[in-house]
Design a binder for these strands. Structure first.
Length: 235
DNA sequence: CTCCTGAAAA
DNA sequence: TTTTCCGGAG
C-alpha cells in the first residue's frame, strides 16, 4: 500500500468487510425503513428535486399540493404557469430554482419516453442522460434509478459522508463517485439492500449522527465508530 | 467558495 | 435565536 493510492480517498485502515457488517447492525437495530414514499417513478423524481437541501416534512406539503392540483405528471407540470408552479413549490424552499429544475427534468423525462422509455434503458445510459439535466446531480439521479427504477445503484448523500468519515472508513472530503464506489465494491448489487441501507443511513444521520451535537451514547453504531469510541474515553 | 429559501426543531 | 434539512450550479 502506497501513501498516495492514485486518487482513492479511502483511508488505509478501510476494510470493506466493515460495510456489510454495519448494514446488518443498522438493520437489526432500526428495522425496515420502507422507502421511498412515492407512488410512481415520476414521483420519486419530483421528490428527489424538492428534497435537495430541504426537510422531507416540507417536501410532503408540496407533493400534496401538486396532487391536489392534479399536477403530478410531467405534462401537467410543463403546462402549469411557471409563476404558479413556483408558488406551489414554496414550502420546500429554493422554489425559484427548484421550479426550473423540475421543468428541465420533466422535459428530459418526456424526451426519453417517460417512465416506460427510461425503464427500457440500460442503467448507465439512463444515468448519463439524467445527469445532463441542469438541476439533477448524482444524488437526485441515483434516487430515481434506485427507488424509481429499482436499479442496483447505491445512493450517497451528506449523511453517508458524515457517518462513514466519523466511523473512520473514509476521508470527510471524499467525492461522490469514490464514496459510491466503496459501497459498490463492498456489497453485492442487491436493490433491496441498497434501498434499505441508504434509508437506514438517513435515519442515523438524522437522529444520532447529527452535524454539531451527535447523540453517540444512544447510536446503534457506537461500538463500530471511531468517533463514538473516542467519546467514551473522554468520559 | 457562495448562492438559492421556507419550515420547524433545537 | 440558531441550526438543520434525503443538493446542485456557478
Amino acid at each position: 500500500m502506497t501513501t498516495k493510492d492514485a486518487g482513492s480517498q479511502t483511508l488505509p485502515v478501510a476494510d470493506s468487510a466493515a460495510v456489510p457488517r454495519l448494514f446488518h447492525r443498522l438493520h437489526g437495530a432500526l428495522g425496515p425503513q420502507s422507502w421511498w414514499p412515492a407512488e410512481s417513478a415520476f414521483e420519486v423524481l419530483v421528490g428527489a428535486v424538492l428534497t435537495q437541501n430541504a426537510a422531507w416534512r416540507n417536501v410532503e406539503q408540496v407533493i400534496d399540493g401538486l396532487r391536489a392540483l392534479d399536477w403530478m405528471t410531467p405534462e401537467a407540470i410543463l403546462a402549469a404557469p411557471p409563476k404558479a408552479l413556483a408558488e406551489c413549490l414554496r414550502p420546500s424552499g429554493y422554489y425559484n430554482v427548484k421550479s426550473q429544475r423540475l421543468r428541465a427534468a420533466c422535459e428530459t423525462w418526456l424526451a426519453l419516453g417517460g417512465e416506460a422509455g427510461i425503464r427500457s434503458m440500460e442503467t448507465a445510459s439512463a444515468r448519463a442522460r439524467l445527469l445532463e439535466v441542469k438541476g439533477l446531480g448524482p444524488e437526485s439521479v441515483d434516487d430515481v434509478l434506485l427507488y424509481g427504477f429499482h436499479r442496483p445503484v447505491f445512493v450517497v448523500d451528506a449523511y453517508t459522508r458524515r457517518i462513514f468519515s466519523r466511523i473512520g472508513l473514509v476521508s470527510p472530503r471524499i467525492g461522490y463517485d469514490d464514496l459510491q464506489a466503496l459501497f459498490h465494491k463492498a456489497l453485492a448489487p442487491d436493490v433491496g439492500q441498497f434501498n434499505e441501507f441508504h434509508a437506514l443511513i438517513v435515519t442515523i444521520g438524522k437522529w444520532y449522527c447529527r452535524p454539531r451535537i451527535p447523540r453517540c451514547e444512544a447510536c446503534p453504531l457506537r461500538d463500530d465508530c471511531a468517533h463514538g469510541l473516542a467519546r467514551d474515553q473522554r468520559s
